[in-house]
Amino acid sequence: MGELRSILKLINFSEKLKYELRHSYLSNGRQESVAEHSWRLSLMAIMIEKYLTKPIDIEKLLKMTIIHDLVEAEVGDVPTFDTMNNELKKNMKHKSEIMAIEKIRDMLGNTLGNDIYDLWMEFEEKETYEAKVANGLDKLEAQIQHNEADLSTWIDIEFKMCYMLDKHVEFEPALMELKKLVLEQAEQKLMKADIDLNSLRS
């Protein structure tokens, strides 16, 4: 009964992800929640599995995609572009997220808490195949959402970020192919707005 009480506490805690907003907007103009991002990321993991060039532990991959942003229920969402060229902000974000995942581990306690903690850390370290795939899909999902949103919601750096995806997916041919399709969508959107693509590629 005590363990189920802890699980319920975490489920209640995770509700915040339904209203914690990301920078991204939806095609209908509403801002996206963290929970919505995590849901579609998990859907992408299921859809891409059979196209990957190596066998993958799909259970582990799905667990990672579902819990990778769980810390944001504690610390909120910090967009990539906020820390991209700022080591101080990047370190502060990392420290706050470590404290959050430790709180989640302790909230659950026992083996389950340690399992969630270990999966989150594996995703962050991006060394295993599952973690690399999860990270690559995470970045692709964000770009797909930008492609679906109105261009007026893009900030300056996002016009170039669609050309920064390779480093996250180049290890896996299937993800590179998906990235090409996602980039095509982005470029079509940009060209429709008469934006010079060459200036973004440099």
Rank of each mutant, 00 (worst) to 15 (best):
I98R: 10
L26A: 05
Q145S: 08
I56N: 12
W154V: 05
E20H: 06
T65P: 04
E177R: 00
Y19L: 07
N12L: 13
A134K: 01
T53G: 03
H23G: 04
K126W: 06
L4F: 15
E32T: 02
E187G: 12
M161R: 15
L140G: 01
A186S: 14
I58W: 01
I157Y: 08
K18V: 04
K139R: 07
L8C: 02
L4E: 12
S6Y: 01
D118E: 14
P173S: 11
L165Y: 00
P173V: 10
E122C: 06
M44H: 05
V71H: 03
L197Y: 08
K63A: 11
P55D: 11
L62K: 09
C162R: 10
L10I: 12
L112S: 09
N110V: 02
E130H: 09
K90D: 02
L200A: 09
K179Q: 00
K160W: 04
E187Q: 15
S33K: 05
E3H: 15
V75D: 02
H68W: 00
E36K: 11
P79C: 03
E127G: 07
D57P: 06
V133P: 13
A73G: 14
M176I: 10
N86F: 01
I98A: 03
E102C: 07
N147Y: 11
N147T: 12
F81K: 09
V169I: 06
S33Y: 02
K16M: 12
A131D: 01
D194E: 13
M161G: 14
K160T: 15
K179V: 00
E127S: 05
F13L: 12
E59D: 11
K90H: 03
F123A: 04
K60F: 02
L151T: 05
